[in-house]
Amino acid sequence: MPGAVGWSERSNADYQSQKQCKKTSFAFYQAVRDLLPVWVLEDMRIMEVLHWEEGGKVSSYSPSEALLYALVHDHQPYAQYLLAHYPQEALAMPSTSFSCCQSSAPHLAMAIRYGRVAILRNILRTLGAVSHSSLAGYINRRGCHRVEGGKTPLHLACELHQTDCLILLLGHGACPHITDASGNTPLDTLLHVIWGNQRDLRLKRLCLDSLLLYLPEGLTFQLREQLRAEPTAWKELVGQDLYGRLAGTSPPPLFALSMHNLLRALPAHRFPEALEELSLPDFLKPQALRKQPCK
């Protein structure tokens, strides 16, 4: 009986501890959501807030986990602070309660899913400053095979036709030929999206144009045979000229080859600043990087 009483007391203590963790954890989530000042958030994270992990472990929020919250709520000053003061810790893997796959790139995936272009740019700049080799390895990580189908951040940008994110990833060295768990390249992923739903077709074609600037002449992708089998439908979707290049019946235009060579020559750790410094008129730049007219 004493053992049973002791077990009951421990269970009650665990319940109270877990309840308190949930309360403080939600308070921190709300504080980030409400865009409270950085110093308030850091005081909470370091001194007050705990969260309950699997296995009954109580932990404070790491810079990595705090950065995920900053991404969700687009708290750019907080994201900038975390990346500046904890460059390695902020981009380390969060605990398994935040990310089931410990070999993925959850911060890049979150930035792309929510369209947080400014924070994504800061993340990539931070990775490049830490190590160029770290940038190349991190940016091409595959997501969870079970949940995300082994998609890389570039696959995800194509799936969601996030052109600004796609350009940043490619400019920082993302591999345009890498495949997911199903053997699809980013180009396959984007073409699947175009074929499956014709909504927002202009944005999807802009994404396709941007992706092709980083692909050389010899395109290799799984959907080529489908393109060749249904030329009429695909020509309506992507246009006559682009269809010819994708189907392999016509070479890429000289402009595309020139831009491909130019973009690949730019240093990844200085993208897109290096492109902006070139004396190119706006109409020669990828459309996603053109200056927007002031309203």
Results as ranks from 00 to 15, higher is better:
L120Q: 12
A157L: 11
S11I: 07
A181P: 00
A174D: 04
A109K: 07
L168R: 08
L263A: 04
F283K: 03
W7P: 09
H107E: 03
V72H: 08
P186A: 00
D200A: 12
A136P: 06
Q20N: 14
S25P: 00
Y29K: 07
H177Y: 12
C165L: 04
E48A: 08
R141T: 04
L124D: 04
R245W: 07
S17L: 09
L211D: 06
F28M: 13
A79D: 01
D209C: 00
S134C: 02
T189D: 00
Y78W: 11
P272Q: 02
L135H: 06
A129H: 08
K235R: 10
G239L: 10
E236T: 04
S64A: 01
V58A: 03
I139A: 08
R45Y: 01
V238R: 01
F26Y: 10
G128W: 01
T24F: 10
E273I: 02
E159G: 11
R121I: 08
R290D: 14
F98G: 13
M93G: 04
L266N: 09
P87V: 02
E230M: 10
P87C: 05
L242R: 06
L280T: 00
S279Y: 01
T179C: 12
R33C: 10
C101R: 06
K235C: 13
P251D: 02
A129E: 14
R142M: 10
S17K: 07
A268F: 09
K291I: 05
G6V: 13
D34V: 06
D74S: 03
T185A: 08
A129F: 11
A31Q: 03
F221G: 09
R142Q: 00
E89I: 01
S95M: 11
A118M: 02
P176E: 15
E217L: 11
G115I: 15
L263F: 13
N184R: 07
G6Q: 15
P94V: 02
M93V: 01
S8W: 11
L170G: 06
K204P: 02
R224E: 01
R199A: 10
L223D: 14
A229I: 06
P63C: 07
I112T: 10
H73V: 13
L208E: 12
Q287D: 14
L170I: 01
A129M: 12
L135K: 01
R113I: 13
D282Q: 15
L169M: 08
S59K: 12
S64G: 05
M44S: 12
G115P: 09
K285S: 11
P87N: 06
Q18G: 13
L71F: 05
T179I: 11
R245L: 09
E53F: 00
L50T: 12
L154R: 04
Q88W: 06
Q30M: 14
L206S: 09
G239E: 00
G143E: 04
W39V: 09
Q80G: 05
D43H: 15
G115V: 00
A181Q: 07
T96Y: 00
I46K: 14
L50R: 15
L266G: 04
T24C: 07
G115C: 13
S104W: 04
R113T: 09
Q287G: 11
D74H: 03
M259G: 07
R10T: 05
S62C: 08
L127K: 03
L82W: 04
L211Y: 01
E42S: 02
G183W: 08
S8I: 06
V40Y: 02
A92E: 00
Y243E: 00
A256D: 11
Q287A: 14
S64L: 06
T220P: 05
R270I: 00
